[in-house]
Write a protein that binds this DNA or RNA. Structure first.
Lengths: 162, 162
DNA sequence: ATTTGAAATGTTATAATGTAACAAAAATAC
DNA sequence: GTATTTTTGTTACATTATAACATTTCAAAT
């Protein structure tokens, strides 16, 4: 996404591979930090990655329940764990969760959210980050976290409407 | 807030006057748009303005109930109305609402939220706005709304900690 | 291999936030 | 003054999230 293209919208995007890679990266990150990538955590992350769209906690729960019992705390705990490692992000304006492309990098949450198809792309723009930081500093404010949620139409949906 | 100072934190801030002015501006805006500034809407807006901190819908409800019956839809309807006119904004990461300083201007939501004292200041930085717009355009994304929520420490709380 | 302590998960109940649907009342238009 | 629209009341419920405590699983140390 550094190049500003939402490449996983395109037809040639191999999504199964995309998910598998995300899971592999996640496992690596967990291990390297001495955390356990348990089957529940893996399953929840996999469900979240199955689309590039934010998914609600109770939607994850429903999917989990198709293969056995599960209750809300199970899902929320997994989500909390995954968020702590930046493997998923919460989209505040949607009460929903989305997989993170670059969990290895320290980064803020910057999201493009399509109001039509709901696809959600994560940005990681240093320029946005630093302008916000600078403006906050002008107000004497010490930033610990930035959340940028940008609603609108993705390129594909925008074309279809015109 | 254009000057980047959070002046209403200071001791000389006359908050009653601040609230009164906000209500007067709100009334004017409603009238000028052919909308009714009913007593419920006024009361809800007043409650929200009583602090420069985001307040939850159910907290507003509690206050309302001190002077008669009220149920959640009453509050949410008033909040929806006030949001439509940009008289209040919803802070997504807090599930809470805050009064808007400059409802007359077209603007995006940009907020500085102090994690310590919870005070919330609205920015309206063209620079932040345009950088986000530009970055989104690079991804072929057509922006309809930006939400920027910046967590951290306000000047006052930051000083107190050091 | 067994014990043991910590981490993770199960389970039940409930809290917190938000909305649907329809009835009644109030304001405005005719 | 009646009709129409807008606002509010009221009840019930949907959605999102967490508290509290029991049980299980895992891994480290013996």
């Amino acid at each position: 996404m550094k190049n500003g293209k939402l490449e996983y919208i395109s037809a040639e995007h191999d999504h199964q591979r995309c998910v598998d890679e995300a899971l592999a990266r996640a496992e690596h990150i967990c291990v390297s930090r001495g955390q356990r990538f348990t089957s529940i955590r893996r399953k929840v992350l996999e469900l979240i990655w199955q689309q590039h769209k934010p998914i609600g906690a109770y939607e994850v729960l429903e999917q989990l329940q198709r293969q056995g019992r599960a209750a809300p705390p199970t899902v929320y705990r997994a989500l909390d764990f995954l968020q702590d490692l930046s493997l998923v992000h919460r989209i505040e304006s949607l009460n929903a969760f989305v997989g993170c492309n670059q969990p290895h990098l320290p980064h803020e949450g910057q999201f493009l959210i399509c109001e039509s198809c709901r696809i959600c792309a994560e940005l990681d723009s240093d320029e946005i980050h630093s302008v916000i930081e600078k403006r906050a500093a002008t107000a004497g404010f010490k930033v610990t976290q930035q959340r940028v949620e940008i609603m609108g139409l993705c390129q594909k949906c925008n074309k279809e409407r015109s």
